[in-house]
C-alpha cells in the first residue's frame, strides 16, 4: 500500500530560483537562506520518496482569468517548466504519476472535494523552486511529482479549514492505493509578504513564528485561522499559507519535527521551512 511518510513546507519565492540558476547561492545575501536547506537535502537523499504530492499555486502562468480552478490536480505524464516571460528555468521536466493522480482525483471527488482535472499544463516557479531547494540541480528530478494547484490569486482562496480537511482526505486516498509507494506531501508558498499597494513589503515575524508553532503542534487551531486574518497579519500574498494546511492535514495529529527554519528576507518575502515526519511511518 502507498503511504505518506513525511511533509515538507517551504516558501517558493521566484528570486530563490533565480539565485540558484545564476549560481548566487553563496553570495552574502543568499548564503544564510540556503544554509537553512542543508538539512533537508541530506534528509531527502536518505528518505528517497517515490512520489511528491506538491501543493503550490500558479502565478498567472498556466491559468489566466479564463479559468480559475480552486483545486486543480495535474494528471499528465509530464509537465514542462513554464516560460514566465524571461524563458523557462533551466531545470528538468517534471515527471508525473498519472495512475496515482487519477486514483487520488477519483477518491477526493468521491469524498466531496470537487477538483479540476488537468491533463496538460506548464508548471511555474511555485512548483519548480521547491524542487530546486530540496534536490539542488540534478539532470533529472529523482522522483515523480503530482502537481496540485490551489487558487490563492483571486479572493477567496479556499479556507484553511477546507485545505486541512482536504489533506485528511488526501491521506485516505493515498493509503487506498495498492502499489507500495513512499509518498511525501509538500505545502509551499508564504510566509508573510505583500507585493502590492502602499503596504507592500509587510513582514510579520510574530505571526509567522506563531503559525509555524501552531501548524506543527496544534494544527486544528492553525486550520481555524480565517482568510481575513492572513490578509491583515501576513499580507495580501501571505494567504498562500493555507496551502501548508493541506500538507499538515495529510500527516498524523502528532508529528516528529525534524527541521524548522525562518529567514527574512528573500526579495519581498519571509521564508519559512519545515520537515515533519509521520510517527506512524516505518
Amino acid at each position: 500500500m502507498a503511504r505518506i511518510t513525511a511533509g515538507v513546507a517551504t516558501s517558493h519565492v521566484p528570486a530563490i530560483g533565480a539565485a540558484i540558476d545564476l549560481g548566487k547561492t553563496r553570495d552574502p545575501y543568499w548564503q544564510p537562506l540556503f544554509a537553512g536547506y542543508d538539512f533537508v537535502k541530506q534528509w531527502i537523499a536518505n528518505e528517497k520518496p517515490d512520489v511528491v504530492f506538491l501543493v503550490y499555486n500558479d502565478h498567472a502562468t498556466a491559468f489566466d482569468l479564463n479559468f480559475i480552478p480552486t483545486f486543480a490536480i495535474g494528471c499528465a505524464e509530464r509537465f514542462q517548466p513554464a516560460d514566465e516571460g524571461w524563458g523557462p528555468r533551466p531545470v528538468p521536466e517534471v515527471i508525473g504519476h498519472p495512475v496515482l493522480a487519477a486514483h487520488i482525483a477519483q477518491s477526493l471527488i468521491e469524498s466531496d472535494f470537487d477538483l479540476t482535472i488537468v491533463n496538460r499544463m506548464d508548471v511555474d516557479h511555485g512548483l519548480t523552486v521547491p524542487l530546486s531547494l530540496m534536490f539542488g540541480q540534478p539532470d533529472a528530478w529523482p522522483c515523480r511529482v503530482i502537481p496540485f494547484a490551489v487558487n490563492v490569486v483571486q479572493y477567496p482562496a479556499p479556507s484553511g479549514k477546507r485545505c486541512y480537511a482536504l489533506g485528511k482526505a488526501l491521506r485516505a486516498a493515498v493509503e487506498s492505493f495498492d502499489e507500495d509507494l513512499n509518498v511525501q506531501v509538500w505545502g509551499t508558498g508564504g510566509m508573510s509578504h505583500q507585493l502590492q499597494g502602499p503596504r507592500a513589503g509587510l513582514i510579520n515575524k510574530e505571526f509567522d513564528n506563531a503559525f509555524l508553532e501552531k501548524l506543527v503542534n496544534d494544527p486544528d487551531s492553525a486550520a481555524a485561522i480565517p482568510l481575513v486574518e492572513y490578509l491583515r497579519e501576513a499580507g495580501s500574498e501571505g494567504v498562500e499559507l493555507v496551502m501548508w494546511l493541506i500538507m499538515r492535514g495529510a500527516l498524523d495529529a502528532r508529528v516528529l519535527e525534524r527541521k524548522r527554519f525562518y529567514h527574512v528576507p528573500a526579495s519581498n518575502t519571509a521564508v519559512g521551512h519545515l520537515v515533519l515526519e509521520n510517527m506512524s511511518a516505518p
Binding site: L65, V153, Y155, P156, Q196, R199
Partner: peptide
C-alpha cells in the same frame, strides 16, 4: 478585508 490599509484585495468584483 476592505478596512486593511494600503491593500487592494483582488476579489470576484475586481476580477
Amino acid at each position: 478585508y476592505d478596512d486593511i490599509p494600503g491593500t487592494t484585495v483582488f476579489d470576484a468584483d475586481r476580477s
